[in-house]
Design a binder for these strands. Structure first.
Lengths: 348, 348
DNA sequence: TGAATTCGTGGGAACGTTACCACGGAGATT
DNA sequence: AATCTCCGTGGTAACGTTCCCACGAATTCA
């Protein structure tokens, strides 16, 4: 039923040339007569030839496959990254093997092994914290995404420009009259948290704000994590309007839920600033004002870097993509009022 | 620098057996002495052997690769499907090549070609409408996801049970006192729309509702599509509370935005029921009541079906996964009041 | 005009694995 | 005791492509 698929030999026979010439013509090499090339291409079309990537990979060592190992494709930010990477890969005739590690060491290790066995040309990886020994032994070209790049100075990495992002967020908070925002951060173990916090402190110092005096709560990078963190924040003593800078949009949305559950209103009583730029932030009420990471662009650039890495070209080093502020309405504008309590500023 | 990767021959030499025996031991064949197998496995561990999937695929015809072609990995529903598929694939030692077609014929065709060239064992596909000729010529085992299955009676397909989903939605609407809901549907060209509408009509007939009398608007399956459709609905003449059944959560969220922009309230003035179950629906205000498709399970089952299809086992035919209702608060409960106008029922 | 160079072409090897066949020895059957 | 069967093993071919080398013809150079 399923007839044997035509090979390059079938094409060569039909075109009346050797398989070497056929191969050269099909791979676009230069040293072939125009006439011969034309005949080969015509023959290939006639028999319905399609190159066997396995055989190519076998012989040439290039499979045209790239690996992508991210925490969870279900997270909108990572989906954007995957999308950007996939599009760029497709432009260059390569395909993407996608894996979700779920922040699990074992799973990540087994994904990396699968990538090696598939003989991918390289991989884009957001590693699970502390599992760097697996990466040390990876043995293939790779590009990192995210904050763990510091651990691999010899490798390219692409991430968002956290410093610029925090500046953007702080500037916006200050311009709206919020001079002492509280923080909702991720788990202590994560490198991203340390990075965010460090940059935040620097910006505080620049603005003569004492970071030690600011309220701060931890939580998982989830809606529930943000919700409980916000509950703890609300339970603290405070006066007047509360502004919160969350390290992640999901946490920000969870915080918004907590505000509502506490019988308070956002942004009238509590202002919330997120970080990521996930689409869901546009549908919350009020819309979530957030610092958006360019997920798709990160994916695109990561693939570019990976190609360079594979080709052995001078490494890009660390690439930081600029973030942008999306203003939607979860921040009250206190700059017009006395610094006592916000009125109904509503949608920004 | 990069030493040659050890092959099965290196393992065989180290273990003092032929490569045939080594191959049998490593692939878990039965006809090998326990002692020989032990020696081979030990040798493999010692030299750090990792099977070359390319060579395996070359010789055996099995690559351990599956393709997944969906409209857009960025859409949360499809991300769930991809996640389920990827997890199940990994359980069986296979990897997933992921492609987004963006509802574009050309892109889909080129993705299908890439899958053939990669010699994937099979593919899971949600085809772009009307591009069935590409699928006819695909030439590899595949399983369909979604509504276009009717066009391929010979192939397995996995989808959500639209009939059950619409029943669920209608039952809920009726139980809350909404006996004549308006509809927001997708573009006319889509098969999914026809399917939804047909089932909806059947349920109307069962309940002595005249479907022709119900307001109905079209739009793209996006937030903006839902928003404009809702604006058109609101512009129509109507009396009392308006209930809307949207064919897609993004449209439902867009409709919610339109309601707010019109100065009306949800659910007090307008009730909205969605369809998909995307996470963003949990963060809107009010939370979106919706009929949730089991995206992840669909992905899992699709992989199972695909394995059967590849193995040539009796086909599953069409698999319909049950949906479930998620009640969040975008529907007013009119059943307690007179059927005139809703009071403030708030969160259901 | 003879030698050197270039160019297009073809043949063979190689990539790493599994499928297939043949062989020898041990145990079972007649 | 002779034959048959089964099992473990090893050697070889094959999968489809690209790489390498060699060959002849055409072209260029001295």
């Amino acid at each position: 039923m399923q007839r044997r698929r035509p090979t390059i030999i079938d094409v060569a026979r039909k075109a009346g040339v050797s398989k070497s010439t056929a191969g050269r013509a099909l791979s676009g090499a230069s040293n072939v007569t125009d006439e011969a090339r034309e005949r080969v291409l015509e023959a290939a079309r006639a028999v319905g030839y399609e190159r066997n990537d396995l055989a190519v990979g076998m012989r040439s060592g290039r499979t045209g496959l790239l690996g992508l190992v991210i925490p969870d494709i279900t997270n909108p930010f990572w989906a954007e990254v995957a999308r950007g990477a996939q599009d760029r890969a497709a432009e260059n005739g390569t395909s993407l093997l996608v894996f979700s590690s779920d922040w699990d060491h074992g799973r990540e290790a087994s994904h990396l092994r699968a990538l090696r066995q598939a003989r991918v040309d390289g991989a884009i990886i957001n590693p699970v914290a502390d599992s760097f020994d697996d990466l040390d032994r990876f043995g293939l070209p790779f590009v990192l995404i995210g904050s763990s790049a510091e651990r691999f100075p010899a490798n390219s990495s692409v991430g968002s420009d956290i410093a610029q992002a925090v500046r953007l967020g702080m500037d916006h908070l200050v311009s709206k009259g919020h001079h002492a925002p509280a923080l909702i951060l991720g788990p202590k173990s994560r490198i991203a948290r340390a990075r965010f916090l460090r940059t935040f402190h620097e910006h505080c110092v620049e603005r003569d704000i004492d970071p030690a005096a600011l309220p701060m709560e931890d939580g998982e990078y989830t809606v529930e994590g943000g919700r409980t963190a916000m509950m703890r924040l609300l339970a603290r003593d405070r006066v007047g309007h509360l502004a919160v800078f969350a390290a992640n949009d999901l946490m920000a949305l969870g915080a918004m839920v907590a505000v509502r559950e506490a019988g308070l209103r956002c942004p009238e009583d509590v202002s919330i600033l997120g970080f990521d730029g996930i689409p869901a932030g546009a549908f919350s009420w009020p819309g979530l004002t957030t610092v958006a990471k360019p997920g798709r662009e990160i994916g695109v650039r990561a693939v570019d870097c990976l190609f360079d890495e594979i080709a052995g070209r001078p490494e890009h080093g660390r690439v930081f993509m600029p973030c942008r502020l999306i203003e939607r309405g979860s921040l009250a504008d206190l700059s017009l009022n006395q610094p006592r309590r916000a009125a109904s500023s509503g949608r920004g």
